[in-house]
Write a protein that binds this DNA or RNA. Structure first.
Lengths: 277, 277
DNA sequence: CAATTTCTGTAACAGTAGTTCCACAAACGA
DNA sequence: TCGTTTGTGGAACTACTGTTACAGAAATTG
């Protein structure tokens, strides 16, 4: 119990967390561990919950008090900075210029691994399981630079199971698409920064219709997060002109792989039938 | 005054510090910046001075209050972790069993790094340079599961430069699209395993019309490779039902990033104009 | 060597943080 | 659809932390 990192504790709880508790967890993992070192009020504001929720969250993690929790974070941070490897690691790459492509791909790869830490394993698993429930329909939509992800996921899910619907983001046409959304339906939305107002509107409508929203977003969390039951954030920041959506695709492929495994009975038949053509 | 790091401020003071003040400085620099994030009492104990001294020290550094000082430290830490390659931000999570998602993303990440070795840096660079030659048109096309990559690349290249054309893979319609392909034009084709015969046909035609083909494919090389002037293969094998196209998207994003850099003059203007809307 | 100045730690103070309680709202199950 | 349960945020409360004043200990200078 003592030796565990705070991040690990969060992943342990995971299922037991309530909606607001989860927002707190997301916020903290989002810029870990800095938000936890701020005063409660600031943490609360950053995670978009009340101060009371933060205190409850910290108590759930097994800490006696908020200061106690902060001490744990500091000690963790101290451990990390004292461990020998990374001191040399970061500055060393200036020696002998690495080819552009290697450096770029290494960076993307690194961000992909970081994203794994950002996403709660239980939440991922839950989302995948829900995707195998073929009784409910599943709706997909993405914004300007993420719509292709929705398309990619759609193409694969269609092979695996029935009941997949694609929404387009334009408010005009989406209105009538949204009519046949039933309570309890699943909706997977993609939204990354410069967040799309149209997507937010779609999310609002879905929320009103009691659909369960799965949000796939970047580390700064789309405003849709407030309406989302499940939230899967990825590290996309590059410091360059464009953010890295390859990480998002990695996540999408992970979902496809997992859902294929879980629903292999159905999937193999369908895929077999389609391959045959 | 505002932008200075706390460490820099300490060095500035230096001579002006009294004996106890210096102990405080030593303590903080000794395990920077963690001690400063602790409560005053703890900071004091760690630096072996009284709490009052710490407060005076912080005031000397130019901060209005101790909380103010801590905020500065946190912001500094946030900056640092966000700008250059993240210092091994969240690595030490390998405790215990690796969750599905982590394992999957780690695998994807690994394959991404391998791909860097697979692709000749010179070839990559050449392709990017040719993409900045705006005198020649550039045509894009992809197969069933890769067409979205062509779309993604198209969307970004359009922002950067003129003369981008998208071909669709259907032989019927592609015929007339291919009419305005001129000798020396660039054509970027995506083709991965279970290779698309239609794509091969498109490649043949392009080849006949003396277009220079850039092929983005998997490690087993599409048959198009014979017609391609440049060939950029990626590791996509997963051993599962589906191959990993996230690696391909990584490569595409690398191209986008590099081309943006090379043609920044043109690109920045165009992007700026479009952002303005 | 003594008087003066500067610096330091202790102890009381004040303010702000963390904590807790309660009423309300949302989700769940009958 | 209605009651029950659970979760949530606002507001009061408490406790701790940062702050400040003061008195004693060094250090410095005449």
């Amino acid at each position: 119990m003592e030796g565990k990192t705070v991040a690990a504790r969060i992943h342990d709880l995971d299922e037991q967390l309530t909606s607001a508790g989860r927002r707190a967890a997301r916020g903290l993992l989002g810029n870990y561990p800095l938000l936890g070192l701020a005063p409660v009020a600031e943490f609360a504001a950053g995670a978009d919950v009340s101060a009371a929720t933060i205190v409850r969250f910290v108590a759930q993690l097994g800490f006696k008090s908020y200061p106690d929790f902060q001490r744990a974070l500091r000690e963790e941070l101290e451990q990390r900075s004292k461990s020998p490897l990374q001191r040399g690691a970061t500055p060393a790459d200036h020696s002998g210029e690495a080819p552009y492509l290697s450096a770029f791909l290494a960076q993307s790869a690194h961000r992909m691994e970081e994203s794994a830490a950002l996403i709660s394993p239980g939440e991922f698993e839950t989302v995948c399981r829900r995707l195998t429930e073929t009784k409910r329909n599943c709706h997909l939509a993405g914004g300007r630079f993420t719509d292709f992800l929705a398309g990619y996921l759609e193409a694969h899910l269609r092979l695996i199971r029935p009941g997949i619907r694609r929404l387009d983001g334009r408010p005009a046409t989406s209105a009538d698409q949204l009519i046949d959304v039933k309570p309890g339906d699943l909706a997977i939305l993609f939204d990354v920064r410069r967040y799309d107002p149209a997507m937010l509107e779609v999310a609002r409508t879905l929320s009103r219709r009691k659909a369960h929203i799965v949000l796939i977003t970047d580390e700064w969390l789309s405003p849709i997060a407030r309406h989302a039951r499940y939230c899967l954030p990825c590290r996309t920041e590059t410091g360059r002109t464009w953010d890295a959506n390859a990480v998002l695709l990695g996540l999408v492929e992970a979902i496809i792989a997992r859902v294929t495994e879980l629903g292999w009975q159905t999937a193999s038949e369908r895929i077999g039938a389609l391959e045959g053509e």
